[in-house]
Nucleic acid binder design. Structure first.
Lengths: 138, 138
DNA sequence: ATCCAACCTCGAGTAAACTCTAGATCAAGC
DNA sequence: GCTTGATCTAGAGTTTACTCGAGGTTGGAT
């Protein structure tokens, strides 16, 4: 096991793919728990922060707002006793994400129907029957 | 067949779920093709506009920006000769949406792993093995 | 000792997509 | 004829999530 190299904001930026500006901004938003400072006032990060930013990214990609990530981060900072709350928050999020995914898949299906419609129109030269509308079956 | 009732912006707002402000803003953005005006200067809509807004909503839900919808709307206004371009635009969009969906599903999976992790931790009282990180297999 | 890159804070600017306000006009009912 | 509610335009304001800039330290290399 070798000693981890010093990880300053530039290194974390490279490792995480976020700009240093963004990382500092995340910190002002309460999204970066447990950041030490060295003697010169520079932020010092650990490997755990790379993993944290990766997880933050997953939350973001699934549509969680910064506001809700703040809540989550605040829970994390409260330690073990916030486990039930964190679990609840993530489960509620999961439910919303699944619903969103279902809606997006349905929307994609309708877009694909439009593609088929245009495709048929273009290849036959004849305007085909209407794309079925929302709220009607088949 | 009965005559369609006059559809003013308030009616379209109700029918589409968009505020009148938004509908007017869409128009300024070139997203509302073929809107007539009556003698008093009021916008007059047809049933087709309800369908149009529904389709716009699908594009939006699948993540298309207003900027790209402008391009699509402009093509629609150019009539039949823009069919190949519309088809191309929608197909490119479909490809992007599928990629986004895949990424979001993967992110959801990681969030669910975190949920399982918390769940195990909470029920056993013991911190379980780490949630697998990105980029590693299993 | 001095240079330069990387860091710091604070505050302003940006982009997207609405959302709202003010002040004016129109039209249908009483 | 008058009121009232819906509509009009033009433009300003809001929200979210960054993104950038100015002006000022810090610290390792020469």
């Amino acid at each position: 096991m070798r000693k981890a190299p010093e990880l300053y904001i530039g290194g974390l930026s490279e490792a995480s793919g976020h700009s240093v500006h963004t990382i500092r901004w995340y910190e002002t938003q309460g999204l970066m728990p447990g950041v030490r400072r060295d003697a010169g006032g520079r932020r010092v990060y650990e490997a755990v922060h790379i993993g944290w930013l990766e997880f933050i990214d997953q939350l973001k990609r699934t549509g969680m707002s910064v506001a809700e990530m703040q809540v989550y981060a605040a829970l994390v900072m409260r330690g073990r006793k916030s486990l039930p709350d964190r679990l609840e928050l993530l489960k509620a999020h999961r439910t919303r994400v699944k619903a969103e995914l279902a809606k997006t898949r349905a929307a994609l299906k309708l877009v694909e129907q439009k593609i088929d419609y245009y495709d048929t129109w273009l290849t036959t030269g004849e305007r085909p029957a209407e794309v079925p509308r929302l709220g009607r079956k088949r």
